[in-house]
């Protein structure tokens, strides 16, 4: 006797919780051949703003955590992804229409990206910062600090991006202590919400990663112009009117990373795009 399956309701991931869109809107997610997969939440302007509020309130705790702690949390994400490998392969096969082998390779690559960045969390400051030999009686040191809230448009390639693309942009932003609001792959958002479930159970504090599903073209302008967003990663915005987004971001001197043609490779440059260098002069005196 066959058993009737229990399908999942895919919702947003904001502030560590899984709300529906406040707008009540959903959009149909389908396989490349058009078969129905799910009704995903279609995030609104208000959802984007709520996500920024959640991200902002999480900055203090996350940026204040030790690098060792953040590194372990990122590594924990990799561990849980590994355990849920079959689920992610299945979702990618369905939503991207690729083979199980290709989907498996994508999941493996995503896990490896989390591991690579996890290892940087307690080392990055040693590479990006340094003591400065100033000409005077001062102990002078430069250290990297997170810039704050980073809004991200995740890569949108037809295949290979729905999970890996997300890891490639979220991990480098959060490892230094930033919090993010990320707009997921529009046509294939299922892996993103399932990743939210991984994050929710892997000691990532609520609000550190906020995942919106829906239309990047609709949501991105509100994030770009938001005064409480410190940096904007347009990685997956190549097909949007991204120059307008960069112009909107200029209003509050938001740091902008321009679109990339492919899925970003793991790199120190990507970590460095969302940090600020702080230089402190300490006076030396015997008095």
């Amino acid at each position: 006797m066959s058993r009737l399956t229990v399908p999942k309701t895919y919702k947003l991931y904001v502030g560590g919780k899984f709300p529906r869109s406040e707008s009540g809107r959903t959009y149909e997610v389908a396989t490349p051949k058009g078969a129905f997969l799910a009704n995903a939440a279609q995030a609104s302007r208000k959802d984007a703003r709520d996500a920024v509020v959640a991200a902002r309130s999480a900055v203090g705790g996350w940026a204040g955590a030790t690098g060792y702690n953040r590194g372990q949390v990122l590594y924990r994400i990799a561990e849980l992804l590994e355990g849920r490998r079959a689920q992610f392969v299945d979702e990618i096969v369905q939503s991207e229409g690729v083979s199980a082998t290709a989907a498996g390779a994508q999941v493996d690559a995503a896990i490896d990206v989390w591991v690579w960045y996890a290892g940087w969390a307690d080392k990055y400051a040693q590479v990006a910062g340094n003591a400065n030999p100033v000409a005077g009686p001062y102990f002078n040191i430069s250290v990297p600090e997170p810039t704050g809230v980073v809004a991200i448009i995740a890569p949108q390639q037809a295949t290979g991006a729905s999970l890996l693309g997300l890891a490639a942009v979220v991990a480098p932003a959060i490892l230094t202590g930033n919090t993010v609001v990320v707009v997921a792959h529009e046509r294939a958002p299922l892996s993103a919400i399932s990743l939210g479930e991984v994050l929710a159970t892997s000691d990532v504090p609520g609000g550190v990663v906020n995942i919106l599903t829906g239309s990047p073209a609709e949501i991105a302008p509100w994030l770009a112009a938001h005064a409480d967003v410190n940096a904007l990663d347009l990685a997956g915005a190549g097909d949007l009117e991204w120059v307008d987004l960069q112009i909107a971001a200029a209003e509050t001197l938001t740091r902008v990373l321009q679109p990339e043609p492919g899925i970003p490779s793991p790199s120190l440059d990507r970590i460095g795009a969302f940090i600020e260098i702080k230089t402190v002069w300490h006076t030396k005196a015997m008095r």
Binding site: N132, V134, A135, N140, T279, W281, H282, T283
Partner: peptide, 20 residues
């Protein structure tokens, strides 16, 4: 971006300067 402890307005070519 620049913090001076028990001093102020110090500049040096080896010391990065710039804002948040």
């Amino acid at each position: 971006g620049v913090i001076w402890a028990n001093t102020f307005n110090r500049f040096d070519p080896s010391s990065p300067f710039g804002g948040y």
